[in-house]
């Protein structure tokens, strides 16, 4: 009985994950803008179409953001775990790369890229 419930719980969670994933696959759209926030405040937004390499230097540390081939990725970071570097490239709306130690979030947004070309605060 307990074993059956355990298996059911396992199945239900996997199914939920699958549904979530399927939903995000179906609804995903190509993004156009890379938005960088540090500690909840916007650091800058860049077009996904323009190739560039940006050093994000904050009080928490430094991350290097590279935009190339319509994708964004973090190539270098001086944080202790370096998880943001190993996270995969992002290109679809809503996808993100997160560096917890540096409170850094890189998110893809949609919308027209021409309006937001390389605006840096």
């Amino acid at each position: 009985m307990k074993r059956k419930n355990d298996l059911m719980l396992f199945g239900v969670i996997l199914l939920a994950a699958l549904l979530f994933w399927g939903y995000s696959l179906i609804t995903r759209t190509e993004g156009s803008t890379v938005v960088v926030t540090v500690d909840g405040a916007e650091f800058g937004r860049y077009s996904l179409l323009m190739e560039r390499e940006t050093e994000i230097v904050t009080e928490y540390g430094t991350n290097t953001l590279v935009i190339a081939g319509g994708m964004a990725t973090v190539t270098e970071a001086d944080c202790p775990d370096g998880l943001c570097v190993s996270q995969r490239d992002i290109r679809y709306e809503g996808e993100s790369i997160v560096c917890l130690p540096h409170k850094l979030v890189v998110t893809i947004e949609g919308g027209l890229s021409s309006e937001v070309d390389g605006v840096v605060k």
Binding site: I13, L14, A17, L18, W21, G40, G94, S96, V98, L100
Partner: peptide
């Protein structure tokens, strides 16, 4: 916590993967 501290919902994107990993590792640990 990440959503609160980083003021972002960006991480919900990872939810399905974290559900699966939590499930599999949880089963092994159990």
């Amino acid at each position: 916590v990440a959503a609160i501290l980083l003021e972002t919902t960006a991480l919900t994107y990872y939810l399905p993967f974290l559900l699966v990993s939590g499930c599999v590792t949880g089963a092994a640990i159990g």
